[in-house]
Design a protein around this nucleic acid. Structure first.
Length: 735
DNA sequence: CCCACCTCATATCCT
DNA sequence: ATGAGGTGGG
């Protein structure tokens, strides 16, 4: 082993050390949560460079989130005296974007191609279906979107897929038509970024060899989350003798829904002939009880590579569990706990509130807001996804590329300028006949619609001319005025927030330029690229992870998915209810429950010192009150690790009759106002009550109808699902 | 032909 | 809560 910079290696445990100093060869590191995965990755890179086994130029490192990429860059520049600019470090999508920008001609793309995010893609598909007069009942846009993405994630173009029946054939035609539409408009969706750059490399031998020879070391974070196409992409790039260094944890694979395949880890091991997989099992993050809980939960999964985390940090505090009457009470309780923690000297920014779905954040935000506690929400409706921002971006996109029909359709009549559905229909027909973009079709238009559309085209020209030579922030400012967006939101009564956001967009542009100049790392290679196009790509790829108020000591709110890779002293996991976590949609998927369990595993292992678990008897969701049983994941934790803060519901979690103020879903009565007594029926049952069924076990009554011999109740049995039962037949006893 | 207003259906997780 | 779709007034 070269002896350079030993201080780089101090403090590593034997397994970490082995991983960092592996001789040049393919490697797979099975790294449990909190086992120092990021540290190993960054130290490996630093070690390769400082021992002269590789230059910065020869490093390619792929991560899954921009946050992780940034983190890696920061740590690296702290470790190494050299500039990190030669390295390619980023997300798959970010790196592919970079590749395509640099070789847009070879990739068959316009120089200023735009990136469609999920919402853009959906509206492009809707537009396509309309123009082809396809019944959108039979071919639902969302479903089609999912189909197209799934094909691309497999690396399959429409021509490469076989169809056996009419429906599949038609669906493939639509896939094909969608691709043509995107090509015509000069836009690419997320999956296309990957597929297109894969094809670019596999078809262009010279280019491929260039990159194969350049990148000697390819390091991949979160390997369990790669999809099939990403795997092939890596394999292709490593074809010239580069070493792949994969780090992953099969227990933290939570992106199957977007094509991730855990099997890729096994394939890597097999195809790259990795003799000994290095396991990192010592956890440096969490106290023992938390780890024991995590291990106990994940043990219930069948398909695992096998791994058990341990720590020498001592068992620490018990895991606190709380049952609330309603989601609102749950939120109030959390706020009280945080206040108490705060008084005890815990930083608010070290407290994280995790939940399964974004919709759950609202109640929590409300409670935090009322209590005057600063908080910060990650994910959810992100900055660049807000409608006013998307409108503004659409104008910017039209400046860069007037043929971008998605952008065109979005703002051609916003703010309204007398261009209605009829005129647009004419225009679309014409564009279709001429095989050209909407913008290009304006010139050939005749009749009444011509004038208003021509003046819109004029407007775009005016914007472009007026903004050439201006710095980017001023371009944005200029566009906000000329487009009439500012004016429009000024006159709207609820428009103040939106106006503020538009101003924020100008700052975002200014920030972007500053960042870009600071470490020219990211897009410097694509020399031809204008600031505008770079900014638009940034907006699509990084939907706005940084919000205002970065510096405040704020409570952190996020979904479990976005919490992956992060850690906090105190973690609350809320909404631990059947149907919510595990999510009911997951029951429909084959391996759905196992993925939910991994998600729970990820959630639990975010905590360093203290973990709270909570659930509510009733919850408002989508305007309906729902009655849920406690999550099965609570049952999977050994009781000895738990400390119940509310009277413990043991056994089936429902030994205690529930409070008597639950109301039927149909009833508007608020469940948290303890006065709406529900009438009991003649059998002594009422909505909200827990009952036991000989076959289905314990459940909660969520609805009732009929009386006497016809009386039926609807019971949510959690594990066994939702059932309607006739009281005259089914034996139900209060539980 | 366009627009403002109303009703209705809809709703994981994310680059 | 938000978007798509329908309706009546201009």
């Amino acid at each position: 082993m070269p002896s350079a910079t030993p201080q780089l290696l101090t403090g590593l445990n034997p397994e970490q050390l082995a991983a960092v100093t592996l001789p040049p060869q393919h490697a797979l590191i099975l790294a449990g949560a909190g086992s120092g995965k990021t540290r190993v990755l960054t130290t490996r890179i630093a070690w390769l460079i400082s021992t002269s086994q590789a230059g910065p130029h020869g490093i390619l490192a792929v991560t899954f989130t921009n946050k992780a990429a940034k983190e890696m860059l920061t740590r690296l520049s702290a470790m190494l005296p050299i500039n990190t600019r030669g390295m390619w470090i980023g997300t798959f999508h970010g790196l592919c974007n970079r590749l395509l920008r640099a070789h847009y001609v070879e990739a068959g793309l316009p120089q200023l191609f735009q990136i469609l995010d999920q919402a853009d893609q959906l509206s492009a598909i809707k537009r396509l279906l309309k123009s082809l007069n396809v019944d959108d009942e039979k071919f639902q846009p969302r479903e089609l979107q999912h189909f197209i993405n799934a094909q691309k994630e497999q690396g399959a173009r429409a021509s490469a897929v076989e169809a056996w029946d009419d429906f599949s054939r038609k669906r493939l035609e639509l896939y094909d038509a969608y691709e043509q539409q995107c090509q015509r408009e000069g836009v690419v969706d997320f999956a296309e970024l990957l597929l297109r750059s894969f094809e670019l490399l596999s078809r262009n031998e010279i280019l491929c060899r260039h990159y194969q020879q350049r990148f000697r070391h390819i390091l991949v974070d979160e390997f369990q989350d790669t999809n099939r196409l990403q795997y092939r992409w890596l394999k292709l790039l490593a074809g010239g003798g580069a070493c792949i260094f994969g780090v992953g944890d099969d227990d933290q694979s939570i992106y199957a829904f977007r094509g991730a395949e855990v099997g890729n880890m096994r394939d890597l091991e097999r195809e790259f002939k990795i003799a000994n997989v290095i396991r990192l099992e010592q956890n440096y993050r969490s106290h023992g009880n938390i780890l024991d809980a995590a291990n106990a939960i994940i043990k219930n999964n069948q398909s695992r590579l096998g791994k058990n985390l341990w720590t020498d940090a001592g068992s620490g505090e018990p895991i606190r569990v709380s049952e609330a009457l309603s989601d609102i009470d749950e939120a109030r309780w959390i706020v009280e706990e945080i206040k108490a923690l705060s008084r005890d000297g815990h930083a608010r920014s070290e407290c994280a509130l995790l939940y399964r779905s974004n919709a759950q954040s609202r109640v929590l935000e409300h409670a935090l807001f009322n209590a005057g506690l600063p908080y910060r929400v990650y994910g959810g409706l992100r900055f660049f996804e807000r409608q006013e921002i998307k409108h503004a971006l659409a104008y910017l996109r039209l400046i860069a590329n007037p043929d971008d029909d998605t952008a065109f359709a979005r703002v051609v009549n916003f703010p309204t300028r007398g261009i209605g559905a009829r005129s647009l229909e004419q225009l679309a027909d014409l564009a279709k006949a001429q095989q050209c973009s909407l913008h290009a079709a304006i010139g050939q238009l005749t009749g009444k619609a011509q004038a208003s559309l021509a003046s819109f085209a004029q407007l775009i020209v005016k914007m472009r001319e007026g903004s050439s030579d201006l710095p980017l922030p001023e371009v944005v400012d200029h566009v906000l005025d000329l487009s009439g967006l500012r004016e429009h939101y000024r006159n709207e009564k609820e428009g103040q927030d939106r106006l503020a956001n538009l101003d924020e967009l100008i700052s975002a542009a200014a920030n972007f330029i500053m960042e870009e100049n600071r470490h020219e790392n990211s897009a410097a290679n694509a020399a031809e690229q204008t600031d505008l196009a770079a900014f638009l790509a940034h907006a699509a790829l990084e939907a706005g992870e940084h919000q205002a108020g970065d510096s405040d000591d704020a409570v952190q709110l996020m979904t479990v998915h976005s919490a992956k890779g992060l850690e906090f002293n105190v973690v609350f996991i809320s909404g631990l209810e059947e149907g919510l976590f595990p999510h009911e949609q997951s029951q429909l998927e084959e391996k759905g429950l196992e993925e939910e369990r991994r998600l729970m595993y990820v959630a639990v292992t975010r905590a360093r010192q203290r973990l709270y678990l909570s659930f509510a008897q009733t919850r408002m969701l989508h305007g309906q009150t729902r009655y849920n049983l406690a999550s099965r994941f609570l049952e999977e934790i050994p009781p000895s690790l738990l400390k119940w803060l509310t009277p413990k519901a043991r056994n089936d979690f429902v030994a205690q009759p529930k409070a008597r103020y639950a109301s039927a879903p149909a009833s508007p009565a608020m469940p948290h106002q303890p006065h709406s007594l529900q009438r009991e029926n003649e059998n002594g049952l009422r909505v909200g009550q827990n009952v036991r069924h000989t076959k289905f076990g314990v459940g909660v009554i969520v609805n009732a109808e009929g009386s006497g011999m016809d009386a039926r109740v609807q019971v949510n049995f959690g594990h066994a699902g939702m059932k309607w039962l006739a009281l005259s037949v089914a034996k139900l006893t209060p539980a």
